[in-house]
Write a protein that binds this DNA or RNA. Structure first.
Length: 523
RNA sequence: GGUCCGUUCGUCUAGUUGGCCUAGGACGUAAGAUUUUCAUUCUUAAAAUCGCGGGUUCGAAUCCCGCACGGACUACCA
């Protein structure tokens, strides 16, 4: 049994698309499960589409998500170099080999000539294809006399190398997800393998590199399925068919609404990220938002992505990376494309946020606190006047409040009253709750807080049991007014826990301020 | 247009050797319970005649054929 070796081979043409992230994830899960190697290879054979920073972005994104590599452009390995532009000298000889063996030929047709040809066919409602039927009419080493070909080559005329597809043979690709897929060579065109700029195309570079890097399984997007027969033929032409990797073509990630492939624009339109990290277009300066900056936790993104096109075969939905590695199987990858669902993504994040340790959450909260002028120190007691809080206090607040949120970014709006006293009181809540006699009740609350031990049970007994219930008062009315006084609105966590947390002095100060501000209501 | 791939609740999907499927779970939605409030949580409900039409079979979401629809590909891009 051959050692499992898989690769993730993106092109550095921009930020890594979330579909690409999923492809990387599936490769990673498969490699880890089988004790194999995971390789990061950069396919930058198209120099016109190269975007600076894209390679670093890819590495940073995958690192953030916990997808690790054993070999690659950033860490090296025994099969390098791992950037195709650095492998440029390698490909030439393989193109030559193919020509020598009659599997490929030189073609001198200029791009303009090909365009003209396509237009010509189009005018007759036909499609031009450079193949066994048309290559005799084109300018290539199959149609031109040998001395003419040599003359052109010697004179430095630009040329490409095209694959010479045999006429009318059935080529079967065995796909691990879809089974056997058969196509006839007559329908396939003579793909360019080697470009006039001296670089190989994807097809050549891909096969050569996968072979040289001893890749055992090619797990890639479904968009590659139509060219898979070409790849199989290349392995055959090179005589590498016995070590040809196994193929698995992943279903596509679709738009949440309507149909079609998920694209960058969809994210902008529907308000969710299509990229793992924020990306700033170096040319336009335009920012595309990423999951990380939106407050998604890497574990949640991984879990969500894993389930978009795969399932463990049972009802389990929450899985860590380690569990995914154990449970992953190519057999359970679905065949049809999956529509991206924002709501489910949020739910995953909520679930993982609950698992997130309070200390870690507090750490994520720090920038928001700073932004609002709140200082956090390690060894100070809580002091509202100086807006400085003990870090343990922040941890406590996070722990108390996290079940209410899906994103760390919601922390401030949910917890600001733990740090800052309300300056305004929600008018609707005031109208509904601040009834006549309320200032008296609130004064009584202050009195109770001043007399009983400042502990949950003691306050509960004195306030809820003795005072409110003892006097047959409306619990909702009093407690909501108290909340209004302390928080400024009538939403929030358990009132007594809140009071205990912010402390006796601050609570009393806030109630007093509410009494002063709101005053007595006459009617 | 051509080739290939696909098609189970609104969405992700279970269903892999045809019977245990009067099609299960999750998200979302609705109702209820809990809570002093909101949120969380819990319970329940609605939601797929398994794309459509034929066949094979005692029996089909599951096998076969046809059709429809959707998608991918069809560059000296990957």
């Amino acid at each position: 049994m051959r050692k499992v070796r898989v690769r993730f081979a993106p092109s550095p043409t921009g930020p890594l698309h979330i579909g690409g992230v999923r492809t990387a994830l599936y490769n990673y899960l498969f490699a880890r499960q089988n004790g194999g190697d995971m390789i990061l290879r950069i396919e930058d054979t198209d120099q016109t589409r190269f975007v600076p920073g894209a390679e670093d972005y890819i590495i940073e994104a995958l690192t953030w998500l916990g997808i690790q590599f054993d070999e690659g452009v950033h860490i090296g390995g025994n099969y390098g170099p791992y950037r195709q532009s650095d492998r440029k000298p390698i490909y030439r000889q393989y193109a030559d080999q193919l020509i020598r063996d009659g599997w490929a030929y030189y073609a001198f047709d200029r791009p303009e000539a090909l365009d003209a040809k396509r237009k010509e066919y189009e005018a007759q409602k036909q499609t031009f294809q450079y193949d066994c039927n048309t290559r005799a009419d084109m300018q290539n080493s199959l149609s031109l006399p040998a001395d003419e070909v040599q003359r052109r080559l010697d004179s430095g005329e630009p040329y490409v190398v095209r694959f010479k597809f045999p006429d009318n043979i059935d080529i079967t690709v065995h796909d691990l997800i879809r089974g056997d897929v058969t196509m006839n060579s007559r329908l396939l065109d003579d793909k360019v393998l080697f470009k006039s700029d001296g670089m190989p195309t994807y097809h050549l570079a891909n096969i050569v590199d996968d072979h040289l890097m001893e890749v055992s399984h090619v797990i890639r997007g479904e968009e590659w399925l139509p060219s898979a027969p070409l790849h199989v033929m290349l392995y055959r032409a090179f005589g590498w068919e016995d070590t040809m990797p196994q193929f698995a073509h992943l279903p596509l990630l679709l738009k949440p609404d309507g149909n079609g492939k998920l694209s960058k624009r969809d994210g902008d339109r529907l308000g969710f990220p299509v990229f793992p990290l924020d990306w700033r277009n170096p040319e336009t300066g335009e920012i595309s938002s990423g999951y990380r900056e939106r407050g998604y936790l890497p574990e949640a993104v991984v879990n969500m992505l894993a389930l978009l096109g795969w399932n463990p075969g049972n009802d389990q939905e929450l899985m860590t990376m380690d569990e995914l590695i154990k449970l992953f199987s190519i057999e359970h990858i679905s065949k049809s494309g999956a529509k991206f669902n924002v709501e489910k993504a949020k739910w995953f994040n909520h679930e993982y946020l609950q698992k997130c340790p309070d200390e870690q959450l507090a750490q994520m909260f720090l920038p928001q606190l700073k932004e609002h002028g709140i200082k956090v120190e390690d060894s100070r007691s809580n002091n509202f006047q100086l807006s400085t809080f003990n870090s343990q206090y922040v941890v406590k607040v996070c722990g108390m409040m996290k079940e209410r949120l899906s994103f760390p970014s919601e922390l401030w709006e949910q917890t600001h009253y733990f740090f800052v006293a309300p300056t305004e009181y929600d008018p609707k809540a005031v109208a509904k709750r601040w009834k006549p006699g309320m200032t008296t009740h609130m004064a009584k609350v202050i009195e109770i807080l001043n007399t009983v031990p400042f502990q949950y049970d003691a306050i509960h007994q004195a306030l809820l049991e003795d005072y409110i219930k003892g006097h047959e008062l409306n619990i909702g009315q009093i407690m909501n007014s108290l909340r209004l006084a302390v928080v400024g609105t009538t939403v929030g966590p358990d009132m007594l826990t809140l009071v205990i947390t912010i402390g006796k002095d601050e609570t009393i100060a806030r109630i007093q301020r509410a009494i002063n501000t709101l005053g007595e209501i006459d009617n």
